[in-house]
Every structure is written in C-alpha cells, then in structure tokens.
Design a protein around this nucleic acid. Structure first.
Lengths: 215, 215
DNA sequence: CGCTGTGAAGAAGTTCACAGCG
DNA sequence: CGCTGTGAACTTCTTCACAGCG
C-alpha cells in the first residue's frame, strides 16, 4: 500500500532502519546535554559509525539538514521517531515469565518510548494469577480469545525453546504481526509477520570466534 | 601462535561467522534426533536460510561434505565448534547483577557449550558478598587486581548506561579482549578489543518500524 | 543421479569525493 | 567557508547455475 502520506519510507534499506534507533538514542543524549544542533560527524562519533553513512541514512528520511550547519536535534529526533512508528503507542505482550522475561518487563528502556506492556502469559500454574511487573497479572495463553481482544502489536517470546514455535503459532493466529523471539530456535511464521531473533548465546559464540582468531 | 594446523579461518567473512552458531544449533538438534547425515537443504530449512548460502558458508571451513550425500552431522558440528573456539572453555565475567544480569547468569544456554562464569561484579553494597547464581559471590569491581587475576576471556556488561563506559575501561585495562554490552550506550574500546552491542529496545523499535510500514 | 563446491552474475551496502547551498 | 546531499566507485554479501565427484 503506497501510503497516502506519500512518504518514501518504503525505500529505506533495512541496514539503515537498524541504525536509526541508535541515532535516535544519540539525539536523546544530545537533547539531555542541551545541544540544539549536531552534524553528521558528531552523530557518527556518538554512534560509533561513519559520517558519510550517517548522512546517507538520514537523507533517506528527507532533506532534514541545513548545509553549513548540521541537523536540528529536536527536529531530527522527532522525524526518526515518526519513521520508526514510535509516535504511536505500541501494545506489547510477553510470553514466558522466566528470569529473562522478568528482566524485560522491568527494563525501563522499553516503556520509555512508544512501548506499553499490555499482558503477560505463562503456562506455570504457580505463576498464573500472580502479579508480574508493570501491574499486570500473569495469565494462561490458553485463552487465545483473551489474546485477540488485547489488540497486541508486538509479542516478545521468552519461553523455553521447545514451546516457542507453538506459542508463535498461537500469537500469529491471534493476529500479532511482529514477534521478538529470545528462545534459541528458528521460528517459522507466515510472510506477513515480522520476526526478529535475538539469541544471546550466538553473541557469545561470535566473541569466542574472535578470541580464537586473535591467536 | 599462527595455528600449526594452517587453517584458513582468517578468511571466513563476518556474515558467515554470524550464521555458524545457528547452524551449530541446528546440528545439535539433528544429533538429538539421531540424524547422522544432513544436506544443505536440510540445514537451510532448520536455520531459516538458503541452501546455496549454507554450502558457501560451510565451504569456508574446508570441504566437509560428501557429494551426493551431504554432511556428517557429528563431523560438521565438531568442526564448527572448533572454528568458533568452543573447544576451549571460555572464562566469562558478568558486570552488573540486575535482573538482566541475573537472567543471563542462570541462562542454561551459556554454560552449555564452552562458556563458564568465573565472576560476578556489582557496585551495590547490599549485593556485594551475597551469592549470585552459579555458586559465585558478588564482588566489587574496585578490585581491578582481582579482575586481572581471573584471566577472563569475555565480559558481559549489564550495568546501567551511565556506568557502562567506565566499566568497559576497567575491563580493558584488566586485559579483557571481548565485551558483550547490553547497556544502551555506544562504548568506545581500543581496536584490539572485540565489542558487540545488544540493545533490546533497538530490536523493538525495528519491529515498530515494520508495523508502521505495513500501515 | 544427487548433492557438494564454486565461478560468475547480481544485489546490497559502504565509502569516496565533490558539487551545491546556506 | 562548512556541511549536507549525492552520483560514482568500490566492497561485501547473496543467489544462480552448473561442473564434478561419490
């Protein structure tokens, strides 16, 4: 759907999208430091990237800079937030209230911008009915009907690997369009669902490789 | 020691390295299912990738397959583990025993293959001296001498954003060569140190973008 | 005949270098 | 004069397509 607003956001490459949240964080830091204007070199330093790439990335969102000056921090932050869809409040559900799930629930960085936890699910009878963080009561995922009624945008899976696929199936059936999976399995979801895998042990193994290489 | 075995591991591209841990996980699943041989199509399905790419990736490690058959699961798993340096036990320290830190400490997936927690640090006086998971006692990072004595390979940072850079500096000074940072800041480390950033809120923001894009 | 290994083609992403505007 | 915006060069990654071996 070629968006009525005529944005050319569709053309923003994935690699750029992955960097925008980082730029946004840098801009928030700049705001906290009362810096009103920043140039591509400054953003590159703060984000650990390259200035030319920063310009290319930002240019995908439009011509937001002023030649000879740089970018207005507030304007740019607002623009990135809008492109990332953070101006809309996203409704997020957590499935699997283990330690990691609990950590995410109480992780300030989320609720911060655009994300609201709307439900917590677990299969453990001892946990169901108890209060999780954020004032939410832990429920059973069996109530798929309940899930549909939540109109959740994003689901975060922090269950054991063995249950992750069936949880994902339930979520997809309930209309969830985006899944962030922390379980160490490759999930299969229909093409219209966006899936991101975060496997913590993969990260450690990559570091291990670099240690092995460096000797 | 420029590896007596004359490996050509140095030429393995980063993108391949990032996928090897995923292939390894698939092979472990195959082992659990008593599947002795697997072909590139099978690995591609299990890992959610493309068969040609799987072959290219694996071929970087040598000619490990048998034409007309596929790859011996055990042999391949062993080879990948060796390339990733998982045959050596890696000594990992955790800095910042918050909820996320606690979750990682007790996350089975780590201790599993090649990773051993050797110390836990925190600045909170109430936590120092108490037992964390894995039978470790929480210590103060002030004792940088202690840290050096640990001969840690990898450090995992789960402190608040504001303290992460100074923690990283301390770790680098103590000789740590690989850092996995969960704090939402861009860390600066010397070139010889490998750094990986995992920012959980970045992941959610990327999902948010895809929701926004899909209308 | 099936599946790996691989050159060649193609796509995607990054860096360069500078024109052009404020 | 400084910094953005951007074509063009370059590099890296992925896919294709098939030769070649078991």
């Amino acid at each position: 759907m070629t968006s009525v607003t005529g944005e050319r956001v569709n053309q923003v490459p994935d690699s750029t999208i992955a960097r925008l949240p980082v730029y946004l964080r840098c801009l928030h830091e700049a705001q906290a430091m009362r810096i009103p204007v920043i140039n591509s070199v400054g953003i590159a330093q703060m984000s650990g990237g390259n200035a030319a790439l920063v310009r290319k990335d930002l240019n995908h969102l439009g011509e937001l800079g002023t030649r000879g000056l740089g970018y207005d921090v507030d304007v740019l932050a607002g623009h990135i937030a809008r492109v990332l869809g953070l101006t809309v409040q996203r409704r997020v559900v957590l499935v699997g209230l283990g330690r990691l799930g609990g950590a995410l629930l109480n992780y300030g960085g989320f609720g911060d911008r655009g994300m609201t936890w709307v439900a917590v699910f677990d299969t453990d009878r001892d946990k169901i009915g108890t209060k999780a963080g954020a004032g939410l009561t832990v429920r059973s995922l069996d109530e798929a009907a309940t899930l549909s009624g939540l109109a959740a945008d994003i689901a975060v899976i922090t269950t054991p690997a063995q249950s992750a696929q069936s949880v994902a199936d339930t979520l997809v059936a309930a209309g969830v369009l985006s899944i962030l999976n922390f379980a160490p399995v490759t999930l299969e979801v229909p093409g219209h669902v966006t899936l991101r895998q975060v496997d913590l042990s993969v990260e450690l193994q990559i570091l291990s490789f670099h240690l092995a290489k460096g000797l």
